[in-house]
Amino acid sequence: MPKDEEFLFASGRIKVLESRLLSRNVIERILEAEDLDAALRVLGETDYATDFEELESIYDFEKALERSMKRTLRIIKESVKDHRVVRFFTLKYDYHNLKVVLKSRILGIVPEYLSTLGEVPLEELVKLSKGEGDAGVPAAMKAAFNEAARLYEETRDPQQVDLILDRALYEELNRLVREIGHEFLKDYLAALIDLTNIKTVVRLKYMKADFRTLEKSLLPGGTIDAGFFEDIFQEPVQALIDALSSSRYSEVIKEGLENWVSTGSPAVYEKLADDFLLGILRKGLYKPFGLEPVAGYIGAKENELKILRVLMVGKINGISEDMIRERLRDVYV
């Protein structure tokens, strides 16, 4: 387990950066902005100013967000000795790219919307998709890719690609967290997996999916084991809410799932789940130095991007303030 002292420099930097995260106040101002321009003016006073200035069209705002995240990751990468902490957060971008590359191959198109936040070079991923054996892609990802490709050949079902690669991502995350051996990340990952699994179960119920799909969709490594979900799969959602009423997710589940049942939309559940995870990360805010502030900050930044994404999409499409507000996540600071 890495010692707190290894993160002194990074924590010092992060304590300053934390104070530059968007405050509730700024989010409110963006939310209340009359139009997109007014919203952008508010953003112009924040750390995102330069990222948005470079944009040619506001519809490319995703690029600005990516640029900002990239800068954050770079700062943290150069400040920590143990790279694995950052890897915990960047791994998902690589798996995202892996999915895009494989699906593009299946559809016979040029890969689009690749993330630049991953750590495996994109050319290597392209090489992998062209079937070149010597592509510089880590063995685990290569194996997952080949497995997904093979399964697609067998079933011709593109959904299998998602299932296999998601599972592979979480298996690797579990492995990484075990290797790092830090309680904070273990706790966070377990909660992330549990909340994702709960969502999967409910979603599949509504889709009237079969049992095999459920088995394949459940992610490994949570505190609630797969058997529980398989047992409850046939029962109504209320049974799930009751069964988990004494778990630590009880509030998320009660409010989120009941809303889901009544409105048919998982938006509130997703928001509450994210807020719950942010609550775990927030330990980093109160710890002066160590792995927690580092991991907490990266997580907080991801959360901030989610908030901005909701805001920008809302503003661009002229969605009402209240509708946006309902989907807005909590803030870290």
Binding site: L8, F9, G12, R13, K15, V16
Partner: peptide, 17 residues
């Protein structure tokens, strides 16, 4: 050394401190 590391982190972002 420890405090210096943390301080350097802060100053890297905010030299006025």
């Amino acid at each position: 050394g420890m405090v210096g590391e943390a301080a350097a982190g802060v100053v890297a972002e905010d030299p006025n401190k």
